[in-house]
């Protein structure tokens, strides 16, 4: 059941990414060139809505559908790797004009060439796993 729910929420997320053009290479480059407010508006208002939602969940001690405590895990603070990894990710984000979520949506839209960056991203994760112990974090 959980898997069907996850698929369904993924479909909703994907539809929003596509209909808002957030999956577009052009939109991402336009954002980095400060030529449009569109992507900043999307990211900014998503964060505000997310933050308010989390505060409401916390204040009302809301429980999940199955009655469990909702306790989102905070992202661990690792200044060095957050920053250096972030820059590397940014390089890829601007090169490819897409981040991981949109890649899956683009593939579904029929851009089969996106299999290349997805496989390459997986290779990147494998390489990270291999050198992880040698990297400063």
């Amino acid at each position: 059941m959980k898997s069907i729910k996850a698929i369904f929420i993924g479909i909703l997320f994907g539809i929003i990414l596509i209909k808002s053009e957030a999956v577009s290479w052009f939109r991402i480059q336009e954002m980095f060139h400060f030529e449009s407010f569109h992507m900043y508006g999307i990211i900014g208002s998503a964060i505000i809505t997310g933050a308010i939602s989390l505060l409401v969940i916390k204040k009302t001690k809301m429980r999940s559908l199955t009655g469990d405590k909702i306790n989102p895990q905070p992202q661990p603070l690792k200044k060095f790797s957050n920053f250096i990894g972030g820059i590397l990710f940014g390089f890829g984000w601007a090169l490819l004009g897409a981040c991981p979520g949109p890649l899956y949506g683009l593939l579904g839209l029929g851009y089969s060439i996106i299999l290349v960056p997805i496989c390459s991203a997986i290779l990147g994760v494998v390489c990270y796993a291999l050198v992880r112990d040698k990297l400063p974090h």
Binding site: I43, N82, F89, L96, C99, G101, S120, V125, Y128
Partner: peptide, 22 residues
């Protein structure tokens, strides 16, 4: 395609997340 894909894979794991997670 290959460079960009590799960097988002490697970078997101090193950083601990991507545009959605971070």
């Amino acid at each position: 395609l290959i460079g960009g894909g590799f960097l988002i894979g490697f970078g997101s794991r090193y950083a601990g997340g991507c545009t959605s997670g971070h």
